[in-house]
Design a protein around this nucleic acid. Structure first.
Lengths: 334, 334
DNA sequence: CTGTTAGCGCATTCAC
DNA sequence: GTGAATGCGCTAACAG
C-alpha cells in the first residue's frame, strides 16, 4: 500500500539502495536505472519520508522559531519573512508561540529540541537573569540566535537586534528640534533590552539638550495597548498638566494613548503629539496617522535565518548584527 | 555526549527497553526503577528524540496547516487559535504558506506529506476544478479539512466554512432596511467559495427586495486592498453616478475603497456608505470605523483542529460545520 | 519485573 | 554498476 523505497525496489526487482541512490542522482547508478526508478517513483506518487531520512542523517532541515505572539503585525511579519527566507534555503520553520510567558517559552524550546530542529531563533520573553531556555539550548549545543528581544543578562550569544538606542535618540532629538520640551515617555519592563535601550536613547537625548524629565513622567505600560491606555488614563485622572509630546516604546503603547486621548477629548496633535516605535501596519491607518520608527523587519528576519543556517553548516558569519530603521513623521506630531 | 535512552541505560546498567518503559510510566516497571531512571534523565537533561519515536510509532503528533498568508490579521488569528488548540491536545502545528499561489500550495502539501504529518488543514487558494493537492492527500489517505476557503469543485471533503450566504443576505437586508437602494458590490474570483456565496447572498437579498443591480455594479477586485483601490478608482474615473452604498466581499477590499474615497474627497458615510466582511482588527481603528461582519475565527479554528484530531484517531465527529458571525454596524454606514 | 529481538524508512559505508 | 550490511533513536511484541 504505502509507497516507500522498498516498494519501488521490489517492483523493479533491484535493491533498495539502488533506489536511494538513483533518487539522489548518485553518479554510481546507470542513467537508465535512474530514469526507470524516477519514472516509477513519479507514477506511484512516491514522497520520501523525511522522518526516516532525518533519523539517518541527523539533520531535519528545520529551524525552530519561538515568538511571543502570532496575531500581531510585528510578529506575523517577521514570521512570514523568516518563513520565506528559510524556504528559499531549503529549510522549514517550526513555529512556537510563547504567549509572552516564560514557562511556555521553555516548554517550546524543549519541544523544538525534541523535534531535533537544526537550530533555533527566539524573540524572547524572558526577563530573568538565569534563563533556562538559553542554558538548555547551550547544553544541547544547538545553534541559537536571538532576534529583536533578548534577555539583557545573556552576553555571549548571537543576536539580531534593532538599533534601538540610536533610533530612539534621533527620534527624540527630532522632537526637540521641533520645539518640544515637556516630553513624557511610556515604556515596559527594563529587563527587556528594547525597553531599556530605547529609554536610554530618549533620556540621553533629553539630557544632551538640557531638558528635564521628571521621574513620574516615565510611565510603565507592559508593551501592550490595554495597559498603556490604563496607565495614561490614570495619569490624566491624577494630574492636570499635559505633556507637549509623548514618546512610546512601541506602536501598541501609542495606540493605547490614542484611546485615552479620545476618551478625554484631547486632540492629537493639537493638544498633544504622539510618537511610537516599530511601525505597525495600522500606524498609517489610525487618525491621525502615527509618527513612528519603521524597523527593517525583513532584513532582520533574513539575516537571522541566513546566519542561523550558516551556523548550522559551520560556515562563517557576521557577529551580532544591528538592524536599522527609518523615522517617519506623520500627522500625530505638529 | 548526546543523552539518549541507550546512554541512560548504560549508565544504570539496565536495558534500553527498561528505560523506555520507565519513562512512559509503563506498569511493567518497578517503581524504584522508574524513579531512578527519571531522576537520571532529569539530571542529564534528557529530551526524547521525537524523530526516532515517530519512525517507530508511525505518528508524528503534528498537523500540517496551509494558509495563503501569515501577515494578515485574519490568517494570523486563525493560525494562532489553531496553534493554541492543537497544543492543548498534544499536537504541533507545521505551518506552510501558499502566498496565494496554487503551485506553492501543492509544494507545501508535498512537504507536509513528506514530513509525515498526521493530518492537514488547508485554507485553500485553489480555483481549479482538478485540484492536485486534494488528490495527492486523498491518495495518501491523510485526514484533511478545508477551513474558510475551499475549491468549489470538491464536494466530498470535510470543511469548516463561514455562513457566508446567510450573513451576506442579512447584511444586505439590513442596508435595504435603512433605505439604501443603489448598492454596489465588490468581489473576487467566483471560483472561490467565499466570493461566490457572499455574492449570491447579496444578489438574493436585492432581488427579494425587488432592487436592481446593474451588472457593471459588480466589480471584481481580487480580494486585496490594492486591487480594490484600483478597481474603484477606475470606476470613479469613468462614471459620475455614485452608489449610495458599497458592500465589499471582505474588509481589505473595503479599505481599498476607503482609500479611493479619500483621494476623491468622497465622504464616508455622508456621500457613500461602506460595509466589509470578516472583521479585521483594524476595521475598528480606521476613520470612520468600518461596518463589517465579525466571523467567529476562534470557533472555526478550534472546531477544525478538534475535528481533524478526531479524524486522525478514528473518533466520531460532526460533518461539515458552518460557523456563524455577527453583523456589526459602525459609523461607515448612516 | 526485566530484557531480547525486530523493525520503522532512509542513507552511508564498503564489498562485490 | 549494484547490493549487502549497518545504524540513526525509539517502541512494540514477545520471551524469560
Amino acid at each position: 500500500m504505502k509507497v516507500n523505497q522498498k516498494y519501488i525496489a521490489d517492483l523493479l526487482k533491484i535493491s533498495r539502495v539502488t533506489v536511494t541512490k538513483a533518487l539522489q542522482d548518485h553518479p554510481d547508478i546507470a542513467i537508465s536505472t535512474v530514469k526507470k526508478v524516477k519514472a516509477l517513483a513519479d507514477e506511484l506518487g512516491y514522497i520520501p519520508n523525511i522522518v526516516g531520512r532525518s533519523l539517518s542523517t541527523k539533520k531535519t532541515n528545520t529551524i525552530g522559531v519561538v515568538v511571543p505572539k502570532i496575531n500581531h503585525s510585528f510578529f506575523s511579519t517577521i514570521i512570514e519573512e523568516m518563513y520565506t527566507k528559510a524556504q528559499a534555503l531549503g529549510y522549514q520553520i517550526i513555529l512556537m508561540v510563547s504567549f509572552e510567558n516564560e514557562k511556555s517559552e521553555l516548554a517550546n524550546v524543549k519541544s523544538l529540541l525534541s523535534m531535533n530542529v537544526d537550530g533555533i531563533i527566539i524573540d524572547s520573553v524572558s526577563t530573568s537573569a538565569k534563563d533556562k531556555s538559553y542554558e538548555l539550548i547551550l547544553k544541547h549545543q544547538k545553534p541559537l540566535i536571538y532576534i529583536d528581544r533578548k534577555p539583557r543578562s545573556i552576553k555571549k550569544v548571537e543576536s539580531i537586534v534593532f538599533d534601538d538606542y540610536n533610533l530612539s535618540y534621533k527620534l527624540t532629538n527630532l522632537l526637540i528640534d521641533r520645539g518640544y520640551k515637556d516630553i513624557m515617555y511610556i515604556t515596559g519592563s527594563q529587563e527587556v533590552n528594547i525597553c531599556y535601550d530605547r529609554l536610554i536613547g530618549f533620556k540621553t537625548a533629553m539630557s544632551d539638550a538640557r531638558l528635564d524629565v521628571p521621574t513620574d513622567w516615565i510611565l510603565n505600560a507592559d508593551l501592550d495597548k490595554e495597559n498603556s491606555y490604563k496607565v495614561f488614563q490614570k495619569y490624566l485622572e491624577n494630574n492636570s498638566k499635559l505633556p507637549e509630546a509623548i514618546v512610546c516604546v512601541n506602536d501598541f503603547v501609542a495606540l493605547g494613548v490614542y484611546e485615552a486621548c479620545e476618551k478625554n477629548q484631547i486632540k492629537i496633535p493639537d493638544d498633544i503629539s504622539i510618537v511610537g516605535f516599530g511601525h505597525l501596519n495600522i500606524s498609517n491607518l489610525v487618525q491621525p496617522p502615527l509618527s513612528t520608527v519603521k524597523l527593517d523587519l525583513q532584513k532582520a528576519s533574513f539575516v537571522a535565518v541566513e546566519k542561523l543556517i550558516a551556523m548550522i553548516n559551520n560556515q562563517p558569519y557576521e557577529k551580532n548584527n544591528i538592524i536599522g530603521g527609518e523615522i517617519i513623521f506623520r500627522e500625530s506630531v505638529k
